[in-house]
Design a binder for these strands. Structure first.
Lengths: 251, 251
DNA sequence: CTCAAATGTATATTTATCTAGACAATTAAA
DNA sequence: TTTAATTGTCTAGATAAATATACATTTGAG
């Protein structure tokens, strides 16, 4: 509860030591363990703490450096660049940009791809349409100060929202795209959250190292009459984001 | 989105192939992919699907067998023993047992340990008391049909709830323990969700293999006047549970 | 400048993981 | 009983991860 974690690494398997250590250090940074020093303990100290060789620690630090959260410099030590973990509110009025308001200087969404598809069973059930109903698909990347924090795949019923992907390319915001198509307001009616390891493609977009964890949120948004307008699957980088479910539904 | 997952395994590192494959198969079982057959595809078929050697698949199956979710038999194939993934609702009226109602035949909570502690900074802030305020601590295990699904650590303000741990040992329910102490009703006012790898002790209680993922929910419950009565950290086994945040706040 | 403390680089060895192929043992169906 | 499909076991080799040493390079303090 207080943050100090036992330095247990596990040899009996599956996950490489350097990865376990990288994950552990990332969590420790998030908990503020090295905040006053502003940098990590020396490689020898970390090696002793985890009961491994110095080179194993170096592999872990290399991974963290690759994620952009620390920067090692010969003679000086390993500086901590970011020790923030964004808190993404999940409520009736969940929106990406305003959710990060104040926490990131520059929250933005980027266009990845779009297309058309017929709704598979799960999507159709969520949107309350028949399986096979035509949908517009849209894939987007959420960034905070230039660092990717979420990768989302959206479905919109084509009958009502054909061309919404074009609006998104200009507006770079789902909310504004809805606005441009005449939907002034919408609410989140359901969010289903799970966690798993990111696959290769997801890691590439989210700039995660192999073994990185994502929070997977399956969300349904509806208009004010309760008619579903959007189904989306958003993957949040678990090391950079936590999801906050509050009671303040009017935010 | 549709359930069929690209068979991407990752060689560049950190997580052993057999572990990635075991995780993938576990998720597929949870998604009901092999439900009609009632067993996994053959080892050769799986090896081809993941692009690895048969022996690597065998290592993955051995891990799943160790978790008790499949059972391999020569000549017959690999039978699926359990294909459930519970959906835990998170709402104003979140409670463990009723949350699993209907999904598990036998939801129950078990007592692990209890004690006294002064509130550290984070807990105090959540309970809206001064840092150092005495609290009763309680650790519990949540089970569904005998399988552990959650491990929780609770803080209660000692001034109001001294002895609640004794009630829990008898009642085996936080809700009923509150009731026995004169608190007839309470509501969830905040839930903060993140994900990470389980540590050794957590894996032991939740019967997870190394590398297993947990959903970590930090929750605050309050009485009907809005005064916090409980702060708890609950770890859900990510392979067995998903958290469902709905809009139906009166459940 | 000198020195200590830190990270960076190199090489060799051991251990764990993955691949490859062959064959035995079990099961269910023809 | 024969056969095909399946899991179980064994041996050997290739690749990746971790350990063990040694020494170079960079930085900041004295």
């Amino acid at each position: 509860m207080t943050g100090t974690k036992q330095a247990g690494v596990d040899r009996t398997s599956g996950v490489a030591l350097w990865r376990q250590i990288a994950d552990d250090i990332r969590v420790a940074i998030g908990a503020g363990e090295f905040r006053e020093a502003g940098k990590l303990p020396g490689e020898m100290a970390l090696a002793e703490r985890f009961g491994v060789n110095r080179h194993t620690v170096r592999a872990a630090i290399a991974a963290l450096q690759n994620e952009g959260i620390v920067k090692a410099k010969a003679g000086r030590g390993t500086e901590i660049l970011s020790d923030i973990r964004l808190k993404m509110p999940i409520s009736r009025r969940t929106r990406f940009s305003s959710g990060l308001g104040g926490q990131a200087r520059r929250p933005e969404s980027a266009y990845i791809a779009s297309g058309e598809a017929v709704a598979p069973e799960d999507v159709a059930a969520a949107l309350r349409v028949a399986t096979g109903t035509p949908c517009v698909t849209l894939e987007t990347l959420g960034l905070a100060d230039g660092i990717p924090v979420s990768l989302a795949f959206h479905y919109f019923p084509a009958a009502r929202f054909a061309g919404i992907d074009e609006h998104f390319r200009r507006e770079r915001s789902v909310t504004r795209s809805f606005g441009a198509m005449g939907l002034a307001d919408y609410v989140r009616i359901s969010t289903d959250i799970s966690a798993r390891h990111a696959d290769e493609r997801e890691r590439e977009w989210l700039r995660l190292t192999p073994g990185g964890i994502v929070l997977e949120a399956l969300a349904i948004n509806a208009d004010l009459e309760g008619v579903p307008v959007q189904y989306s699957r958003t993957l949040f980088s678990a090391g950079r984001v936590s999801l906050h479910v509050g009671t303040d539904m009017d935010l």
